[in-house]
């Protein structure tokens, strides 16, 4: 990332360069300063999939070193943690694996672009658990409660957050029966 205020994107020359894009091709390294749009269009995520080089192996690197993550603002997302299991986005970036099923919700904003790149789509169209259909309304309620809880935590209204947490636990406990 360039520290100069005047650095413009070396590709389009229109927007400010926020991304330091290093690419190594056949052992030769090239460095470019690009805006985010151009970095994305440059196809930083096109990989050849061989036996030693699968998506899962490079996933950690993909998350950690991609142009998006070089952005200063999104660096903050690294310290973001899952309220359910305490796993941080940084750990996900290092390992490529999530900590629990709730991490998907916790890191939704960061994960969605990645999921889109991996699968080309974000909406599941396949099978769903048969019993799942019944608790859709319960889940929606839980979703909004969790949202309220993290908002409360952000506001440092911990008492309120704890109340909401208990409410969530009650609903989850009832659901398990």
């Amino acid at each position: 990332m360039s520290e100069q205020e005047t650095q413009m994107c070396q590709r389009c020359g229109q927007r400010a360069a926020h991304v330091h894009f290093s690419r190594v091709v056949n052992g030769e390294k090239s460095d470019r300063f690009l805006c985010e749009d151009c970095a994305r269009e440059e196809g930083a995520f096109h990989f050849m999939l061989g036996p030693q080089f699968t998506v899962q192996h490079v996933l950690g690197g993909l998350i950690g070193n991609g142009p998006q993550m070089a952005n200063r603002e999104t660096q903050a997302a690294f310290e973001h943690s899952c309220p359910h299991c305490g796993y941080t986005y940084r750990k996900f970036a290092e390992s490529g694996r999530l900590g629990c099923d709730r991490c998907y919700e916790a890191f939704q904003n960061e994960l969605n672009p990645l999921i889109l790149r991996l699968h080309g789509r974000v909406q599941h169209r396949g099978k769903l658990p048969q019993r799942g259909a019944h608790d859709l309304s319960v889940r929606r309620e839980l979703d909004s409660l969790r949202e309220r809880m993290s908002e409360a935590i952000k506001r440092e209204a911990f008492e309120e957050a704890a109340e909401i947490r208990d409410q969530i636990r009650r609903i989850e406990g009832g659901q398990a029966e």
Partner: peptide, 15 residues
């Protein structure tokens, strides 16, 4: 699982 994402897996590559 999740209505949007389907079955939730340890690796997002299996989502």
């Amino acid at each position: 699982y999740d209505e949007t994402s389907g079955y939730l897996t340890a690796w997002p590559t299996n989502l």
